[in-house]
């Protein structure tokens, strides 16, 4: 399977980040893994890695909802306003990772301009789904 160039994990929970990093490494999905502890850090990383036509720009962002400093919703609002090359913007797939959602949050999530959302925890199957739906590739059979 052709690996993604870069994936960005955004979650304030260090354990979640550790497990997801572990999973993605084991599945060998991406060349590079970036980790941000909140929306603001994620924005900063995007600003750094998506300058010019570099290959460092993350192709997949796994975004948590509840985070301190800047939560998932605020990140998406800021992301919309970010000046990005159209090529980069088109290449970036954002998937929200949630736990149980408050009904009004479900409504909010559904209105967002994102590729999709997944219930935690992240598993091999869920990663494979994302790859199939958005990158037209799949994990090798175990």
């Amino acid at each position: 399977m052709q690996k993604l160039t870069c994936a960005l994990l955004v979650d304030d929970d260090q354990t979640t980040n550790y497990l997801n990093q572990l999973l993605l490494k084991r599945l060998d999905v991406s060349d590079k893994l970036l980790v941000a502890l909140n929306g603001q850090e994620a924005l900063d990383l995007i600003a750094i890695h998506c300058q010019g036509a570099t290959a460092e720009c993350p192709a997949l962002i796994l975004l948590d909802v509840k985070m301190p400093v800047m939560d998932g919703f605020a990140f998406l609002e800021a992301y919309e306003k970010l000046s990005l090359l159209p090529a980069h913007r088109q290449a970036i797939i954002i998937v929200m990772l949630t736990t149980s959602l408050h009904p009004k949050d479900v409504e909010r999530v559904q209105k967002l301009n994102i590729a999709g959302f997944l219930n935690k925890p992240l598993t091999r199957e869920k990663v494979n789904e994302v790859l199939k739906n958005h990158f037209d590739r799949h994990l090798p059979e175990e």
């Binding site: 979640t16 497990l19 509840k66 736990t99 149980s100 935690k120 925890p121």
Partner: peptide, 15 residues
């Protein structure tokens, strides 16, 4: 509570 409990239990399961 269910959100805050879910995250650690998911983590425990993942770990």
């Amino acid at each position: 509570a269910s959100h805050d409990l879910k995250a650690p239990i998911s983590n425990i399961e993942g770990l």
